[in-house]
Measured scan of single mutants.
Amino acid sequence: MDEEYDVIVLGTGLTECILSGIMSVNGKKVLHMDRNPYYGGESSSITPLEELYKRFQLLEGPPESMGRGRDWNVDLIPKFLMANGQLVKMLLYTEVTRYLDFKVVEGSFVYKGGKIYKVPSTETEALASNLMGMFEKRRFRKFLVFVANFDENDPKTFEGVDPQTTSMRDVYRKFDLGQDVIDFTGHALALYRTDDYLDQPCLETVNRIKLYSESLARYGKSPYLYPLYGLGELPQGFARLSAIYGGTYMLNKPVDDIIMENGKVVGVKSEGEVARCKQLICDPSYIPDRVRKAGQVIRIICILSHPIKNTNDANSCQIIIPQNQVNRKSDIYVCMISYAHNVAAQGKYIAIASTTVETTDPEKEVEPALELLEPIDQKFVAISDLYEPIDDGCESQVFCSCSYDATTHFETTCNDIKDIYKRMAGTAFDFENMKRKQNDVFGEAEQ
């Protein structure tokens, strides 16, 4: 370990593993360490099931009705991949897709007046949907046509809207959309967690709705994908990429100290040895004095023996409960997957309800979601602090990732990755940087 590296990475969460992969592909010498004996950090999948019970201090362990412990891979952080989103792009560019198998999530649902409705995925579904009345549908269709044709580089498509100054509230007004449709559009399509976006320039919202539609167009059922064997497969896929390009991995490796000289990182000390480096990437748990708390998320993992009611017996789905429907500031989400994804025993389902904490009784906040899941065989409640770095790391060369937020997709995580890359490399992130180099010394032969 007593060696000189360009970059040392602490923690094998998804953000850290993707950055480690990119740095290795770009010719950097990388050492990647984790104090845990497993990959994934906060974003790991726990197996066998006995391990999950232990982690949540349920000492009696799983009953026999849960089947074989080894058949379970339970995500600690519930997220899906947008089919046309940035993480899929990263997987394709790096060819990490060859280590993973994905399934399309069967449906996306939205909560309205105590019931759940399928988010329409085709024009026919939209016309048949009970989510809105006849005239509302016509106006909504006009709005969707506007979004589909919108091109930020072609003012002819703006229809009198200025993407940089017109607020989204004004765009909704222009198409005369009612409150329910606005809730549905902002939260189930643009996937905002709160209503803060309404008074911001509309460009980002329009682009988010386009991303949803384009992702949906790829597979038809929903815009989301999920990897077989759980999300823990993602960091491992990128760790393989890093290793192929010469990255060194050490799990179960305690970090005793991060060594600084004149305010700059110069190395990491572990078990009496020092590895030197020019730059350091880590998750917040490794540098508690360089991060601040930015809120909390509650996630309740529920094991069920039945599909969720009114989802047409889907073996995977997402449910969004827009905040307006339950008098909150932030949406509540449910991600459900099952034995069909090799993450649970035969006939079992895993539904994870999550939201940003707003009160001193977080469990009560998630109740509307839990009511949709009854009866629940077993619950595991996790309340996590969200951390963000206190500075950009440019001076110390210590670059810290943000905690995983309450969103049900990876777009915010990818933004964090691109942002850290830019601060480390001094140049904007470009997907081309992730391409495997042809015929290089570490390149794998085609399968």
Rank of each mutant, 00 (worst) to 15 (best):
D6Y: 00
D6N: 04
I8K: 01
V9E: 00
T15H: 14
E16K: 01
C17T: 04
L19P: 02
G21D: 06
G27A: 05
K28E: 06
K29S: 10
L31C: 04
H32S: 05
D34G: 04
R35G: 09
R35W: 05
G41A: 00
S43G: 11
S44P: 09
T47I: 07
L52P: 03
K54S: 13
L59S: 06
P63S: 11
S65Y: 06
S65R: 04
G67R: 07
G69C: 07
R70C: 14
D75A: 05
M82R: 03
T94I: 02
T97V: 15
T97D: 09
Y99S: 06
D101Y: 07
V104L: 06
V105L: 04
E106Y: 09
K112Q: 03
G113E: 08
K115G: 03
E125K: 09
S129L: 11
N130T: 00
L131T: 08
L131P: 07
L131S: 13
G133R: 12
F135P: 08
K137Q: 06
R139P: 05
F143P: 03
F143L: 07
F150G: 09
E152G: 11
N153V: 09
P155K: 14
F158S: 08
E159A: 12
E159K: 13
G160E: 11
D162I: 14
D162G: 07
D162S: 14
T165N: 00
S167H: 14
S167A: 01
M168L: 00
M168R: 02
R173M: 14
K174R: 11
K174M: 14
L177T: 11
G178R: 13
G178S: 11
D180H: 05
H187Y: 08
D195V: 08
C202H: 13
C202S: 13
L203H: 07
L203S: 15
E204M: 15
T205H: 15
T205A: 11
V206M: 15
N207H: 03
I209V: 11
S215T: 03
L216V: 06
A217F: 13
R218C: 13
Y219G: 15
Y226S: 07
G230W: 14
L234A: 15
P235N: 15
A239R: 14
S242N: 02
S242C: 13
I244F: 01
I244V: 08
Y245C: 12
G247E: 02
G247Q: 15
T248K: 00
L251Q: 07
N252E: 14
K253Q: 14
V255D: 15
I258F: 09
I258R: 02
K264F: 05
G267S: 05
G267Y: 10
G272K: 04
G272N: 09
G272M: 08
E273L: 13
C277R: 02
I281N: 14
D283C: 13
P284F: 02
D289N: 09
K293T: 01
G295I: 10
I300D: 06
L304H: 00
T311A: 09
S316L: 14
C317D: 04
C317L: 08
Q318A: 05
I321A: 01
Q323V: 03
V326Q: 03
V326I: 11
N327E: 06
K329D: 09
S330Y: 05
S330A: 10
V334T: 03
C335H: 14
Y339H: 10
H341P: 06
V343M: 03
V343I: 15
A344S: 04
G347V: 03
G347E: 14
Y349E: 14
Y349D: 02
I350M: 06
I352T: 04
A353T: 10
S354V: 11
S354I: 02
T356N: 01
T356A: 10
V357D: 10
E358V: 01
T359F: 00
E365D: 06
E367R: 14
A369N: 14
A369G: 10
E371R: 12
L373M: 06
A382N: 13
A382E: 10
S384C: 07
I390T: 07
G393E: 11
C394T: 13
C394V: 03
C394I: 00
C394D: 15
E395G: 09
E395S: 14
S396V: 09
F399Y: 13
C400D: 01
S401G: 02
C402S: 12
C402R: 12
D405R: 02
A406V: 07
A406D: 03
A406C: 15
T407I: 06
H409D: 13
H409Q: 00
E411K: 04
D416S: 15
D419G: 10
Y421C: 10
Y421T: 08
K422E: 12
K422N: 09
M424V: 10
A428D: 00
A428T: 11
F429M: 01
F431N: 03
K435L: 13
Q447G: 13
